[in-house]
Design a binder for these strands. Structure first.
Lengths: 220, 220
DNA sequence: GTAATAGTGTCTCTCAGACAGTATGTC
DNA sequence: GACATACTGTCTGAGAGACACTATTAC
């Protein structure tokens, strides 16, 4: 006995700015909750989307113009209470982008809000974001995930600050660099970042296929 | 533009027997793939299931008679190619049960097969099981998850054997017990397991709400 | 007593955290 | 030269792995 069930994808797009971790929200253009801020999302198109991941990629591209270097399925949220139209499923994804790319190539009418200070959002989008933040924080503590919040080349200090912003505590410089060195997933590029003081070596992620996972948490 | 999309839940039910980790399969009673072995699964019932988790619990109960002490959403598998009836979504869950409970209370006509030696199954069920095995192995290395493969009270040696079977390598007895002692998520019960030699203290999981996670992997 | 398993003590090596030190740029 | 930031070296303490040791039961 099949029901008329609503199937959507929603994307939690993270970026890092000075203030910390932020999430992208768009004004809804249709009912329900027209004109309210919400996660970019949309119906699955069974004719064109080969799977939900392709649907999430399409929705993100259509609504924001962005192609994220990292896009991972988060969780599926479902039930009769989360959408006024009826029993629904949202297959939620999360994505990470560098904030300069977001500002240059992103949508003109988007809102970035800090993840720890969000207004009440439609549907169960607060819950979806909370879920995504928890996943991002957990996974950042034992993986190379925070690299995707930075531009393709970055200094070790920038990477350390990124880890600190995401996981929420200070790290020791020496231990952090030792760990990166042991894990060996970065490689220097032929440039340095110059500033007012000693220039810093730029690094990029080694061109491996998969996200690098650590066997311990990055620090306490 | 909504499509007629098929929404199902499938449950990967693990148990541990002498031979190692096994998964429960049932003979299908409907087309497609009638009479073939497959994961227990079924349509979401929008009228009665409050969400997909409730649907998974119901399907497991209906098809096997079992109520699992651990049931976690695994991943959602979707697309136009996985089911001959059309574009479909399966929200997959995995569950762990003690094998004695499974044998006593489980279905009469079920098949248990070792996870590393499965025949070709219908739909993308081989992929779903591979996904579940990977999740179980990963999570077992940094959590109390394997406890749910044992009866409510167990000896430390039994628990160690369980970890070894799931994660696939030998552990050191002394280090294992030190770790358990430090983490403090077990408590002794007022019984011992008697056998032909020195009796062993029985333990149970402390009545906490959540799965206990470690900050390091259990061993190498 | 022996056999077999339950359970503990201790040494070593690795690694994280703390922190001081050196290096290299701008001004 | 001063200063700020990049980067490295070293000490220490916590915990994992190895392994030998003691404890308690059945026979």
């Amino acid at each position: 006995m099949e029901q008329k069930i609503i199937l959507t994808v929603d994307v939690v797009l993270f970026t890092l700015v000075e203030g910390g971790l932020q999430v992208l929200l768009l004004k809804r253009t249709h009912e329900p909750y027209m004109d309210q801020l919400a996660l970019p999302g949309g119906y699955i198109h069974a004719e064109t989307d080969v799977d939900s991941r392709a649907g999430a990629r399409r929705v993100l591209k259509e609504k924001t113009g962005l192609v994220s270097p990292y896009l991972e399925q988060l969780y599926s949220f479902s039930g009769g209470a989360r959408d006024p139209r009826g029993w629904s499923v949202s297959i939620a994804y999360y994505a990470l982008v560098d904030s300069t790319v977001l500002i240059e190539q992103g949508p003109t009418a988007c809102t970035l809000l800090p993840v720890d200070d969000l207004p009440q959002l439609p549907f169960d989008h607060n819950r979806i974001i909370a879920f995504a933040v928890e996943r991002l924080r957990n996974k950042s503590a034992y993986s190379a995930l925070p690299c995707y919040l930075l531009p393709p080349a970055f200094t070790l200090t920038e990477l350390q600050k990124t880890y600190e912003m995401v996981i929420g505590n200070k790290l020791d410089k020496s231990a952090f660099r030792r760990k990166l060195n042991d894990l060996d997933f970065l490689e220097p590029v032929a440039e340095v970042r110059t500033g007012v003081h000693r220039p810093a070596q730029l690094y990029r992620i080694r061109p491996t296929r998969n996200l690098v996972l650590f066997d311990r948490l990055i620090s306490k």
